[in-house]
Amino acid sequence: MNRELVKRIVLPLLVLVVIIQVWSGIAHVVEDFPTPSDTYVAAFGGVDAEGDDIVGVLSDPFYVENVDDKGLFWQIMESLKRVFGGFALALIVGVPLGLLIGMSKNAQYAFDPFIQIFKPVSPLAWLPLLLFIFQDINLTAISTIFITSIWPIIINTALGVRSVNEDYMNVAKVLQFTPMEKVVQIILPVAVPFIFTGMRLSLGIAWLVIVAAEMLTGGIGIGFWIWDEYNNLAYHNIIIGIIIVGLVGFILDVAMGKIADYFDYTKKGRS
């Protein structure tokens, strides 16, 4: 157990060393590419290679200069707001639609072709169309997230409904459950873990999409911040941005996973 823990800490550190080596190699070859130490200084502040004193972007993530110039924390919050807006919409529309498609063969026949066609469409393809419709950064980002993250929710909800064991339905029939009782007492408990799997995938997609969406729409948000740093030739900040996007995505996924486990009867003992 203890050895296991040591391995879990030491082995990733070894990989980190390799990554930093490769990164340094790239920085050596590519002109103007920030070295790991430059990037560290840019993030946390200190003295850079030229001997200049630098204030790190992470040393004050909470500053507010004006509407368009805010600390990284606010950039991330802005992105998260859009992500959760689109995600919530996807949930509100996707779950009932998934239940319907799972329960009715006719609904499945009706919707399935469109799900299959729209599911693989990249958010980048939707963006211009939605931007044209809404002419508004927030609405465009939210609707792009909605339309690209709704599919796993629909598909997994329907899958959950279809995975209801016929024996359970027979129990319901013998007890003469009404259709509503069947949904609430049999179908939903079976489907909920599937719905959460869908939500987890969906939230992952939403976080992927927001960065791309904000790059194209501009304004404020972590995606736009990264693009802005590119335009400012502050390449080290791009790397910092990438790491932050990764960390936030990871935290979202873990949190969603925890919530999903909580509602999954197969992973729960008696409370």
Binding site: N170, V171, P189
Partner: peptide, 13 residues
């Protein structure tokens, strides 16, 4: 007419 099913069919939740 209550039924006891072969695989018990208890609701696992």
């Amino acid at each position: 007419r209550a039924v006891v099913f072969q695989n018990h069919s208890l609701l696992p939740w």
